[in-house]
Each structure stands twice: as structure tokens, then as C-alpha cells.
């Protein structure tokens, strides 16, 4: 499972982005995106903004769950009170080990069986939704703290604080 997380301002400017991998079920916390996918991720994420802007007026909750899917890429969205969007692209890796020859298929099947109950294997399961919700909640708290800084000009300034990045990474390790 690999994740690409981005914070977008109300004017759709990226304020912060972070890539990480799952730390659950023995994951090492590193993303498994190829270089090509990295560029594509940004496209996929931004193309889901239209859907966010439609959905955000239909429900008052902050967390909008999985809102978009592009092949194996799932997008979860979270909209803050000040219309800043948190978008998380998640890509289950369990479907990737194809074309590795037949020796690996048994192993892959075994590992996917182990993963089927874990967070991330099934991007739309209630457990995954809950985990992402918790992750977003924690990032939101830290985002508000970043905004509270008198030197931060809300809501269209890039967040450069390394402490903020550490906090987001820690939230990712904790929940995803």
C-alpha cells in the first residue's frame, strides 16, 4: 500500500505534499510508486477536485470518504471549515505482483490472504475508512496549529515546517 497525501488551498494551490507507505502488517513505511506513477498521482489527485467541490455541498461532515477511483488509485477527501482540501491517494499493492512468473503467485496469494483483513487491502472497507478518518483528523489538528502561527498567511501559503511534516508522517505510521 502506497499513499500520496496533499493539502490544497481553496484556490487549488498545493500547500503541502507527502508520500509514504503503509506501516501496518509489516510494511516499512516507504512508498512503492514508480517514477512515472509519481507524476501521474498529482494528475489523478487534482482531477478529483471537481468531485470534491460537488460533494462538499451535499454533506456537512468534514470527511467525505472515498470519492474517486482511477484504476487502482483511490482518492479519499477531507474538507476543512475554511475550504482547504486534504486529499489522500491510496494504492493497494496487492494487485501489483503479476507478471512475476508462477513461482510467486502462490506466495502472493498467501500474502493477499493475510492482508485481506488489514487496513488498506480493501480501500472501501469500514476499517480503512475509519483509519483514514483518524489520519485526516490528526492532520487537521496539526494544520490548524500551523494556521495559528502569526506568520502564516491563511489560507494560501505553503506549509514548510519540518515539524509539520514529521507530524503528518507520524500520523501516517500510526493509522495507515
Amino acid at each position: 500500500m502506497s499513499y500520496y497525501f496533499a493539502i490544497l488551498s481553496p484556490l487549488d494551490t498545493p500547500l503541502f505534499e507527502h508520500e509514504f507507505g503503509t506501516s501496518k502488517s509489516g510494511g516499512d513505511g516507504h512508498p512503492r510508486f514508480t517514477d512515472q506513477a509519481r507524476h501521474l498521482n498529482q494528475f489523478i489527485l487534482h482531477s478529483s477536485l471537481d468531485i470534491v467541490e460537488e460533494l462538499q455541498w451535499t454533506q456537512p461532515g468534514l470527511y467525505l470518504k472515498v470519492i474517486d477511483k482511477f484504476f487502482q488509485n483511490y482518492i479519499s477527501a477531507f474538507v476543512t471549515a475554511s475550504n482547504v482540501k486534504f486529499l489522500l491517494l491510496h494504492q493497494p499493492t496487492t494487485s501489483v505482483p503479476a507478471a512475476n512468473g508462477e513461482a510467486n503467485t502462490a506466495q502472493a496469494a498467501a500474502s493477499s490472504r493475510v492482508n485481506s483483513t488489514s487496513v488498506g487491502a480493501n480501500p472501501t472497507s469500514p476499517q480503512t475508512e475509519e483509519a483514514i478518518k483518524n489520519f485526516m483528523g490528526e492532520v487537521y489538528e496539526n494544520y490548524v496549529k500551523a494556521v495559528m502561527s502569526p506568520f502564516y498567511k491563511a489560507p494560501n501559503m505553503e506549509i514548510r515546517s519540518p515539524v509539520f511534516r514529521q507530524r503528518v508522517a507520524a500520523a501516517g505510521r500510526k493509522y495507515l
Partner: peptide, 28 residues
């Protein structure tokens, strides 16, 4: 003006988690 922008998020996060919601219409 900037105070209002920042207070919006702060006041929302201070609400109990159950009642955290974005205002969707003028009255709310």
C-alpha cells in the same frame, strides 16, 4: 479579516467531534 479566516478552523476543531460540521447554508 485574517483573524476571521483563522478562527473559523480553530472554533470548528474545538467543537466536540460529533458536532463538527461545515456550515452549508447562510443560516448555519
Amino acid at each position: 479579516h485574517p483573524l476571521g479566516l483563522k478562527l473559523l478552523d480553530l472554533l470548528l476543531i474545538r467543537e466536540p467531534p460529533r458536532s463538527q460540521s461545515r456550515p452549508l447554508n447562510i443560516i448555519t
